[in-house]
């Protein structure tokens, strides 16, 4: 049983975190010329999000699947919930094939330093929605 009921919940919380991030001035500055367009594909429940950092927009579902990313990140929705709260060691998860990161290394590696500041944003999104049950 996944911690998320359905894709809509994923979009509301993880997608919601990305929505905040792409509008955040420090992120806009940090991702200005990076070409960082991340396709996040989650399983169980299946969900697809495209985070276009330079374009400052987030697409979900079919709209995301049809766009062109520069980096692809795949993981289960449960691991995504842990990861965006800072509870999944990325290198270990990659080595254990719990997470898959594809794309040009130079672009993909720009994503990792950006994840840390998102942990607090994600936790806040969950708290604001009264979903403390998703906190790990």
């Amino acid at each position: 049983m996944s911690v998320f009921k359905d894709a809509e919940e994923v979009y509301a919380f993880i997608g919601g975190m990305f929505e905040k991030a792409v509008q955040e001035p420090s992120f806009i500055e940090a991702t200005k010329n990076t070409g960082l367009v991340v396709l996040v594909t989650q399983t169980d429940p299946d969900a697809t999000m495209l985070v276009d950092f330079p374009g400052q927009k987030v697409l979900v579902g079919d709209a995301a699947a049809n766009a062109t990313p520069t980096v692809q990140l795949r993981m289960s929705s449960d691991n995504s919930n842990k990861f965006w709260q800072g509870h999944l060691n990325f290198t270990l998860a990659m080595a254990q094939r719990k997470v898959k990161l594809d794309g040009k290394r130079s672009v993909a590696l720009k994503l990792l330093p950006l994840t840390q500041p998102l942990f607090d944003t994600y936790k806040q999104v969950l708290r604001d929605a009264g979903r403390d049950d998703l906190l790990v």
């Binding site: 990659m94 990161l101 594809d102 040009k104 290394r105």
Partner: peptide, 12 residues
């Protein structure tokens, strides 16, 4: 030259 950019990340 940054050519390692083209290799799969896990295989770098």
């Amino acid at each position: 030259d940054g050519k390692d950019d083209e290799w799969p990340l896990e295989l770098r």
